[in-house]
Amino acid sequence: MGSVRTNRYSIVSSEEDGMKLATMAVANGFGNGKSKVHTRQQCRSRFVKKDGHCNVQFINVGEKGQRYLADIFTTCVDIRWRWMLVIFCLAFVLSWLFFGCVFWLIALLHGDLDTDYKDDDDKSKVSKACVSEVNSFTAAFLFSIETQTTIGYGFRCVTDECPIAVFMVVFQSIVGCIIDAFIIGAVMAKMAKPKKRNETLVFSHNAVIAMRDGKLCLMWRVGNLRKSHLVEAHVRAQLLKSRITSEGEYIPLDQIDINVGFDSGIDRIFLVSPITIVHEIDEDSPLYDLSKQDIDNADFEIVVILEGMVEATAMTTQCRSSYLANEILWGHRYEPVLFEEKHYYKVDYSRFHKTYEVPNTPLCSARDLAEKKYILSNANSFCYENEVALTSKEEEEDSENGVPESTSTDSPPGIDLHNQASVPLEPRPLRRESEIGSRR
């Protein structure tokens, strides 16, 4: 089982795998120059863009038009607004034209077009017409509009002379109601789609790998820009990579689940303020055997998904993003964004995407760390350097704002901070800030 798991979770494809794949392509008759073999020097295209759209195009789909027309309502909801407006206008105009032609044909076959009612006051002739005051196609078209929109100006009306005319008036009224219901329903469904809710759900630009509770963890940050909550919010993550099976089958995008606390339930989050999602790199993680150097040379993509129900409509929305291997910062942490004021908490989104480097973060893999092949620094050293990194950030910001350097908390000259780390230190809580992250 261990060997199978290692093969499945191998992220960085070796040169031997690339040569094996190329040999397979030639042997199977696919070596026509169009096949692409992804190596370390040639990274694959992003499968999920940063804005959440999937970078996929469908080609050679059989009976595409028929399949889309069979699900016309979903098609109308998914198309762009400009095409929705075109369909909206065409549906009414074509129905008016169709029934206008029908009423014109009825008048033509009944002989109503030969009668001039402007110079004739004989009401008996008017009563013999199928539709009064309809003696041309324009008049028939206007009567069709008046019937379907129930305008009723009063000059044109159907008589009991022709039952077919009466039937067409009733039929057009029913068709008009159906068109109204369909168009209004599609427009309302399109307006109520929770897709735009994703514009106020954000992911951090970069993911980070750092120590948390004595273990290497992959972390990324999510935030909600609205005050309205995302009900039943939960997160998922998958690692996408290519691999070759033991039988020699090439899988271009193998999807591997990344555990973010599904078993323990901590994948469900209360997204009021930005939260750091934590994936513990343990023996079940696809990143277990990867060191910093392996991450730098790897070719994979981590897709992160945030799902929840919109509070206003109770409709489920899904926000997506992805991180390539070069977008994962090893040995970094996110800057705090949640600050405790006197009577409330304040979230500073200008710090949302910012990170700071944490010294002495192990550069080895989580496996080597678990097997004690890498000796961690003293816990006080880690905490102290973590505090120094934050303090230096604040000093830089104070210097930019014009604060005198004498007010900063610099260490005395001639003292090495790293050498001082081995000395037991008193706890130094942050002056006014605390970061709330997901705790395992």
Rank of each mutant, 00 (worst) to 15 (best):
H343D: 08
H205T: 10
Q41A: 11
I281T: 01
L417P: 12
R367Y: 01
E405G: 12
D114C: 02
L90Y: 03
H53D: 09
D17L: 04
C162S: 01
V37D: 14
E340Y: 04
V260R: 00
K342Q: 05
L430E: 14
P336W: 05
H53G: 11
F352Q: 01
S14R: 07
F352V: 00
N380H: 09
P252S: 14
V77S: 11
V166E: 06
E357F: 05
L329M: 11
V126S: 07
K49C: 07
M188F: 07
A165F: 00
M168D: 00
I209R: 00
G154I: 02
D120C: 01
S246A: 06
T74P: 15
S381F: 05
V102A: 10
A366V: 00
V231Q: 08
D116Q: 15
I305C: 13
S322H: 01
I79Y: 05
T150C: 08
D257A: 07
E327K: 00
V278M: 07
K241W: 09
E15M: 06
N401R: 12
I302V: 10
H234P: 01
K342D: 08
N198Q: 14
R80N: 15
I275Y: 13
V37H: 08
L225A: 12
E400W: 08
V222A: 04
T355A: 02
E199Y: 10
S14K: 09
L271R: 03
G414M: 08
N135S: 14
V423L: 15
F99K: 01
D71L: 05
N401E: 12
H53P: 11
S408I: 10
I174A: 06
L363F: 12
G2E: 09
E371S: 04
I251V: 07
I179K: 10
L253H: 06
M191L: 11
N259W: 03
R243V: 10
I151Q: 05
L142M: 08
G33K: 11
V56D: 03
G185C: 13
T115D: 03
H53K: 05
Y153S: 13
M188H: 12
S377K: 05
D119R: 01
W96V: 15
C162K: 02
R40D: 13
V170R: 01
F103E: 00
S45Y: 09
S242W: 13
T361Q: 06
W220I: 06
R44V: 15
D289V: 06
G185N: 06
D213M: 13
F155K: 05
L230D: 05
K346S: 08
F300I: 06
E433I: 07
V278T: 06
G223E: 03
Y374H: 04
L430Y: 05
T200R: 12
N7A: 09
H343Y: 07
R367L: 02
T23V: 03
W81N: 02
N378S: 12
L271E: 04
W81H: 05
Q420A: 10
Y374K: 14
V187G: 05
A91Y: 15
D267G: 06
W81R: 05
Y68Q: 11
A233D: 01
W330K: 01
E146H: 03
E311G: 04
Y384E: 15
D112A: 01
L105Q: 02
S365C: 10
Y356E: 15
G29L: 04
S144A: 04
S144L: 01
K227C: 06
T39V: 08
L287G: 01
P194I: 03
S136C: 06
F155P: 14
D213L: 08
V77A: 11
R67Q: 04
Q66S: 12
K227M: 08
M188L: 14
C157K: 10
Q57W: 05
N386E: 15
E426V: 06
A366Y: 01
T115K: 04
A237H: 00
E16Y: 07
I295F: 11
P424G: 12
K118S: 00
M19V: 11
L94S: 02
R67L: 05
V166G: 00
N135E: 11
A22E: 08
H38T: 13
C383E: 15
V166S: 01
T147K: 02
Y323N: 00
A312F: 04
I436L: 14
V77C: 13
F300Q: 00
N297I: 07
D257F: 06
S144C: 01
S399W: 07
Y344D: 14
T149F: 02
E311V: 08
R221G: 01
G185M: 04
V208T: 09
F141C: 04
N360S: 06
E400G: 13
Q293P: 12
V358Q: 12
D121C: 01
A186D: 14
T159K: 01
L324Q: 11
F30K: 15
E433D: 09
Y356D: 00
Q66P: 07
G18C: 04
M309E: 13
S204M: 00
Q172E: 04
S35V: 11
W104K: 01
F262S: 05
E280P: 10
G33D: 14
M219N: 01
Q318P: 07
H38F: 07
Q420M: 11
N386R: 11
W330Q: 00
A186N: 12
S35Q: 10
E387V: 01
P412S: 10
Y349N: 05
G62C: 10
R351A: 15
L85K: 02
N401M: 08
D213Q: 15
K118D: 01
V102Q: 07
I72V: 10
A27W: 04
G331M: 02
L109E: 14
E433A: 12
M211T: 11
Y288W: 13
S204I: 00
A325Y: 02
F47Q: 03
Y345S: 04
H205Y: 07
N401F: 07
P413D: 12
E405L: 09
D263G: 08
E327Q: 04
S95D: 02
H343R: 12
D71G: 13
D267R: 07
E301P: 01
L363D: 14
